[in-house]
Amino acid sequence: MLTPLLLHVSILGLAAASALGLFATRRESPSMLGSARILAIVATLLVLALQLRRGMEFGGLPLVSRFDTLLMVAVLIVGAALSIDLTRGLSVLMIGALPVALAPLLFAAAIGMPDEHPERNLMHPAVGVHVFLTLGAYAVFGVAFVASILYLIEHRQLKARTGPSLLGMMPSLETSYRLTLRALAAGLVLLTAGIVLGYLYGRQVLSGASWRLDAKVWLTTVSWIFYVIVFGMSFVPAFKGRRTALASVACFVIVMATSWVASFWSHFHRYP
């Protein structure tokens, strides 16, 4: 009873924070922005409380179901955006990240909490770290996605010379671009570590080679290649700026969609 309540309250909190944040940006009101920030922090803490509760229920890291991983992605996205906001003063990034974090929470609410308990081998700490690193990578790619969206909006306004709207709270193009590149680099490091750890654990624990052909393994590797290409593109003069931002957005959308679909095809990565 308490778990669904916590989830729904945190969804409402994050939705209210998103709306308030967008309104604050429009009105350029620092006080509303502060309220949105507090609301987002409270909502995120509620999700964390929910995860803690679930972890305590089955005595391990709460990362062993699709429901749990969606919650964790939301927490990591808000956490990353909030820390950038608080350390670099990029409030718009935090506001942009809130709807992106809201989406996995809504998915989690839609699929509901699994009734069955996780398999024993999923409770291994190495699996927890592997999942955490991979989800961390997706969250950081989510930040890159938001920063790229900000870049594209700002770029469009500057090119169109549309007046004072472009003089609002948006960060400079250079700021958004640098953030995109840093987030891509951090995401690649996390994803690489996650993949390597998963591979090493799989080789040690699982028999046969069939798990290496798993849809999720393949699609994650393809995602990694995509991101390496995008990151590499950012150093090519002709692709600097808008094209890299577009590629980062496209990559995130594709990766999220395929990751979701692959989890249904996958035998090995099929969560309860």
Partner: peptide
């Protein structure tokens, strides 16, 4: 908010491109 002169607006616009 915003610039109220051509030089101020020019500098703000450049500040929207460069960090």
């Amino acid at each position: 908010a915003g610039g109220a002169s051509v030089p101020a607006v020019a500098a703000r616009l450049a500040g929207k491109v460069f960090q």
